[in-house]
């Protein structure tokens, strides 16, 4: 009897913890369709009014466009640099491999505020603040570890026989990389690209320092408004932000499933 009781208690506890994780994450969704403007209890008056406000507002439109540009540029930079690093880390035998690995992964651990102020001071001097390029360069630093982890995992699973076969048939190293290695790494690279996009899409702290009133991402605009007033309009923005991230993660899951099948 007692083990059974313990088991159901553990099940109940896990359920509650699961709800604690997911409910506040999804809470913005009912909030964004809520008819009352006070953001208290969800009422029965559903409305899409807040989405209309967001979609017709020029400042949210500009912020969304900036976010998309920064995200895409970050994906291009982080994926190309990260793939090269990951392949070298997975295959290469050279001195300082451990140091390099620690260096590439450390933006995950070093406090973002620290990276943000250092980058801000440099970018002020280089005239890179308030620009899409500056934001993307800074986001690439934060996104690189995710790309490297994703591509390294794929590179370690890669069967080297294919590469040896191609080389023995006379393909030069560059051709082998382009025609054999890269296609085989593709799922890892795509996963890394998605991680890089979500990292840039959701990032606030660095973006807060590097943005200007003309060039700012959606999370930055949301941050400035959250601090002044809490409106259902922000819940609509929040829903859009979460929806894009979740679509990427679900896409990733389907991709993995496809690979395993």
């Amino acid at each position: 009897m007692r083990p059974v009781l313990a088991k159901s208690l553990l099940g109940l506890l896990s359920l509650l913890i699961g709800l604690f994780l997911i409910l506040p994450t999804l809470f913005v969704v009912p909030m964004s369709f809520n008819g009352s403007s006070s953001l208290g209890l969800p009422t029965r008056n559903w409305t899409t009014h807040w989405y209309t406000t967001v979609f017709t507002s020029s400042q949210w439109g500009e912020a969304a466009w900036t976010s998309v540009q920064v995200g895409i540029l970050t994906v291009l930079l982080a994926t190309s640099l990260g793939t090269l690093i990951a392949v070298a880390l997975a295959r290469g035998t050279f001195r300082g491999r451990g140091v390099l690995q620690a260096l590439v992964l450390s933006p995950m651990i070093i406090p973002v505020v620290v990276v943000a102020i250092g980058t801000y001071m440099n970018f002020v001097a280089w005239g890179l603040t308030g620009s899409v390029l500056g934001l993307a360069l800074a986001h690439t630093v934060l996104a690189l570890p995710f790309v490297v982890v994703a591509v390294s995992a794929a590179a370690r699973q890669l069967d080297q026989t294919y590469e040896l076969a191609a080389a023995s048939l006379g393909a030069r190293p560059r051709t082998v990389f382009r025609r054999i290695t890269l296609p085989l790494l593709a799922p890892g690279v795509v996963a890394g690209a998605l991680f890089a996009f979500v990292t840039s899409w959701d990032e606030v702290v660095v973006a807060l320092f590097l943005s200007s009133p003309d060039v700012r991402t959606m999370p930055v605009l949301m941050w400035t408004q959250v601090r002044s007033q809490v409106s259902p309009e922000l819940a609509a923005v929040g829903t859009l932000l979460v929806a894009v991230s979740m679509l990427s993660v679900v896409g990733l899951h389907l991709l993995r499933k496809d690979q395993n099948a």
Partner: peptide
């Protein structure tokens, strides 16, 4: 999924939800 969906969702949005809650 209950762990990964919040993990990959905006920290700012999740904090915003808590300010309302």
């Amino acid at each position: 999924a209950l762990v990964l969906l919040p993990f990959w969702s905006s920290l700012l949005v999740r904090t915003f939800s808590w300010t309302v809650l």
